[in-house]
Nucleic acid binder design. Structure first.
Length: 900
DNA sequence: CGGCGGTACTG
DNA sequence: CAGTACC
DNA sequence: GCCG
């Protein structure tokens, strides 16, 4: 965990820094000790296992105590929320309203120290940690019965069925209004059910304020910053809420921009470009060198070039033309969301309110070719021919009216522009608060450096295979700066705009054309379904990863063949099948199999169907067989073929397939969290972002201290339904509450107010004892999860979001499962597995070794026998991790570098 | 040729 | 049990 | 799909 210290150091402003250092020292020492012990003989290992468990328990106690003393959001217990880089992230703790103040610091301290510092110095720790200790009766025993307010009435069974769009009508009247565009409810029977559900829910509405009003109140507190300030509401919170949207500069911009009349005469220099203030987007073929060139030329001409977008100043945004085809990247670039697929998170970035929507409206976005042309002719040429226009699907998914599209765009841009304006380019208050709360915040997303595949493909189809200039450029950029270097100071981040610019590239961008094609191939395999399709998908995807991290640009199939022969290790995952495709790719620029699949109209169809939730490969095929060919068909003649969930998803299809700005995800999370707190002060939430294409929001809720058994979750969901926030329910698992068990809700929600879209939301509740496992699960990419689980399996353990248990198996079948190890922090899970905690990016330095408690290979006792963990297995696991890390690192921040 | 993560709802 | 979902 |  070498990273923690470095991160801590960054927290210059953090008054706790010193303490962290000490604590870290202790942690380190302990870790070392643990590691050594683990490395011993089998016999001893066994005892060690128990020891670890005990250790974890002690830590837990410590952490819990610390949290209690700090009286804070129990986030203190949050697993590894500390410096754990990419993975940990996660949970930003939600300040408890009882909280006193510096949530951030406290949280952090509790989190990081809680565990490692450990046992003995417990008192001392507590002393260190609880600064503002408002003492709370630290009832060590969590079991405190709490009257269940939930009865079976609106329990799971009842709700099970009901869940159609209709729900919204009763839930929230505001919904009734703008429901217009939404498709009609599905089945009548369903609607009745759901009404009754809602009715019953409403009946016992009990609680505080009711219904929609309540939700409004919640929202009034301010969408994004809310969480962090509620305790120390000192921040200039009451922002302009009712602020109308700012200028309709949009339409005007679209035509007027021919020659920009800069408002501020900063660069008094006169020249052909005077008045131009360009924001260059460092993506695609626009490389550092390109930017330098631009800068030189434009500056000489009296203009200004920056990589930052400055509202009110920037007159043009210049981006690689190929981005017009992948608007999301651009959007992400400005949203600070980095297109992160999975990893996260930028959790922090998101919370910080940098957000999307920053995608400036009213400022023309032009291709780099325009700029080149300008420079060449030394004159500002008309931008008309060079405008990059967002693809239609972005603005209006449905063929909806352009009005709807406009509405949408406003929606997404307005609030954010406001905050920018308000903050004067500085961190908005809310964001600042969030930053403070998060303490270290680190991640920043950065943009994924994806090569301009379109070009490549287009070109190669016509014969040219080369063109890897893009990739080559990217490749040439070296990466520096470790992950741990992330700057905790969010404020700065805002200035850098997440200029993912430096685009990481630790050489990853190599072979991206081929890799992208393989990934497409993978997706198509998945769509097609059939025997082993999942594995084929994985196979292709894996191969793509191998190519990407190869570190060498391949231009010839022979190179790969040689590698296969001489360094098979480096290209493991590239089998005959993939090699065949690659051969044609390098020779002719195409992959026959891909061409074939892409040309198949049926697959296109299946793919469309599968974009609807709860419609997988099998159902899609069935629909196709029924002659259904489009979503329209599905609506008109295929409803009866769909499961209830699928019908709901179909109803909301246009909404939920839209990505949502990160800021909105934060709002949603804030609503859920606030409601949770109102029910149960002290509850904490954290949300992990949603998937990139599906854009859902995950909110993890944990019970407050000492109330492990209270049915927070049931009440929470009920209330969210009452307020109209939740409009549809897809699944409600684990309800009603059972002590010690997790619960989860999957459904669709909609923020109040006009023009909001429905969004997929998952809300999960995990008791404290499982929280770390849950976080681990939600944090990790699926890949990472698989790898870790299979590693556990090798050791005779079973890992899931519900714990880490030793299991006895017979013929692969589980015959007995022991109780779970106790892990309150993610790190504990690693320890229990004998794994070094490592954030995904602490790469190569630590290769294979030291991963598991090596020695004789790390044997483990399983059903009385010793099962060796071979070097092979270990390497395989290592490879998986590396790959995963790779995916993550694509988004790594290079901003540190910018942060100068 | 068999294995490829673990869990849980829905029908 | 198969299908789907979640990471 | 790939690997052992």
């Amino acid at each position: 965990m070498a990273s923690s210290p470095s991160v801590y150091h960054q927290g210059k402003h953090n008054p706790f820094t010193q303490r962290f250092r000490k604590i870290d020292a202790i942690r380190t020492a302990l870790r070392t000790a643990v590691a050594e012990e683990l490395a011993q003989q089998t016999e001893e290992r066994r005892r060690e296992t128990h020891r670890v468990n005990a250790e974890n328990k002690r830590r837990s106690a410590t952490a819990a105590a610390a949290a209690l003393d700090g009286k804070t959001d129990s986030s203190g217990i949050f697993p590894g929320r500390d410096s754990d880089g990419y993975g940990s992230e996660v949970s930003i703790s939600v300040p408890c309203r009882l909280g006193c103040d510096g949530t951030a610091s406290r949280t952090r301290s509790a989190g990081s120290s809680g565990g490692r510092a450990v046992s003995r110095p417990r008192d001392r720790l507590v002393e260190l940690l609880s600064t503002a200790a408002c003492v709370k009766q630290a009832s060590a025993s969590p079991d405190k019965a709490f009257g269940w307010r939930v009865d079976s009435g609106d329990g799971p069974e009842g709700e099970q069925e009901g869940a159609s769009g209709v729900a919204s009508t009763c839930g929230g009247r505001r919904d009734g209004h703008d429901r217009g565009p939404t498709p009609p409810p599905a089945a009548a029977s369903v609607s009745t059910e759901s009404q009754s559900v809602l009715a019953s829910a409403g009946a016992k509405g009990g609680g505080a304020k009711t219904g929609v009003r309540f939700l409004e109140d919640i929202l009034r507190l301010g969408p994004k910053g809310s969480r962090s300030n509620d305790a120390g509401g000192a921040l200039p919170n009451p922002k302009r809420k009712s602020h109308p949207r700012r200028g309709g500069c949009k339409g005007e911009a679209s035509r007027t921009q021919t020659h920009k009349k800069p408002r501020q005469g900063t660069g008094a220099v006169s020249g052909p470009f005077s008045g131009l203030s360009l924001c260059v987007v460092h993506l695609g073929s626009v490389t550092n060198n390109t930017i330098k060139t631009f800068k030189r030329g434009v500056c000489d001409g009296g203009g200004h070039v920056s990589m930052r977008f400055t509202p009110g100043d920037t007159t043009h945004i210049v981006a690689d033309a190929s981005l017009a085809a992948s608007w999301e990247k651009l959007d992400n670039y400005f949203s600070g969301w980095g297109g992160v697929d999975d990893l996260d998170d930028a959790v922090n970035g998101g919370r910080v309110g940098l957000k999307s929507g920053m995608m400036p409206e009213g400022v023309p976005i032009v291709s780099n070719e325009w700029l080149s042309e300008c420079l060449r002719r030394s004159v500002v040429v008309a931008t008309d021919a060079y405008r990059l226009i967002p693809p239609p699907h972005r603005s209006a998914p449905v063929a909806a009216s352009s009005a709807a599209a406009a509405r949408q765009q406003q929606r997404s841009s307005t609030p954010d522009n406001q905050s920018i304006a308000a903050g004067g380019g500085i961190l908005p208050a809310a964001a600042a608060a969030a930053a403070a709360a998060a303490g270290h915040i680190g991640l920043a997303s950065s943009t994924r450096l994806t090569a301009a595949r379109n070009e490549v493909r287009g070109g190669s189809t016509q014969g040219t295979a080369g063109q890897s200039t893009v990739a080559a450029d990217l490749e040439s950029m070296a990466v520096k700066g470790g992950f741990g270097a992330r700057n905790p100071d969010v404020g700065k981040k805002r200035h850098t705009f997440h200029c993912q610019s430096t685009t990481n590239s630790r050489g990853h961008a190599v072979n991206s054309e081929a890799a992208d094609m393989l990934e497409d191939l993978a997706k198509l395999c998945a769509v097609r379904g059939g025997d082993g399709s999942v594995f084929k998908e994985r196979g292709f995807k894996n191969a793509a990863g191998v190519l990407k991290r190869l570190g060498v640009q391949i231009t010839n199939i022979q190179q790969l063949k040689d590698l296969r022969k001489h360094e098979p290790q480096r290209v493991r995952g590239l089998g005959d099948s993939v090699m065949k495709e690659l051969a044609t790719f390098y020779e002719e620029g195409r992959m026959y199999r891909l061409d074939e699949l892409e040309a198949d109209p049926k697959l296109k169809c299946l793919k469309i169907f599968q974009e609807v939730g709860w419609v997988g490969a099998v159902k899609a095929q069935q629909l196709y067989d029924q002659g259904i060919r489009s979503i329209e068909d599905l609506r008109t003649k295929g409803l009866h073929l769909l499961s209830e969930q699928a019908q709901i998803c179909l109803n909301r299809h246009e909404d939920i397939t839209q990505r949502m700005p990160r800021s909105e995800a934060a709002e949603i999370e804030a609503v859920v969290t606030r409601v949770a707190q109102s029910i149960c002060p002290g509850a904490c939430g954290s949300y992990r972002r949603g998937k990139s294409h599906c854009g859902d929001v995950d909110v993890l809720i944990r019970p407050p201290e000492g109330q492990e058994d209270s049915p927070v979750f049931d009440d929470l969901i009920k209330r969210l339904v009452e307020t109209g926030f939740i409009t549809d329910k897809l699944t409600l698992a684990g309800s009603p509450h059972k002590p010690g068990k997790s619960q989860s809700f999957m459904g669709i929600c909609k923020l109040p107010g006009k023009g909001r879209l429905h969004r997929r939301v998952d809300i999960k509740f995990y008791p404290t004892s499982l929280f770390a496992f849950a976080v681990l699960y939600f944090t990790g990419s699926s890949h990472f999860n698989r790898s870790m689980r299979s590693f556990a399996k090798i050791k005779g353990l079973k890992l899931s979001d519900k714990g880490l248990c030793r299991v006895n198996t017979v013929n692969g079948e589980e015959v007995h499962r022991f109780p779970s190890y106790s892990c309150l922090r993610e790190e504990d899970v690693f320890t229990a597995l004998g794994l070094e905690w490592r954030e995904p990016k602490d790469r190569d330095g630590v290769q294979v070794q030291a991963f598991c408690s090596k020695g004789e290979g790390g044997a483990t006792e399983l059903s009385g026998r010793v099962v060796p963990v071979t070097l092979e297995q270990e390497q395989q696991h290592q490879a998986l991790l590396e790959q995963d890390r790779l995916e993550a690192s694509d988004y790594e921040d290079a901003e540190l570098q910018q942060q100068e």
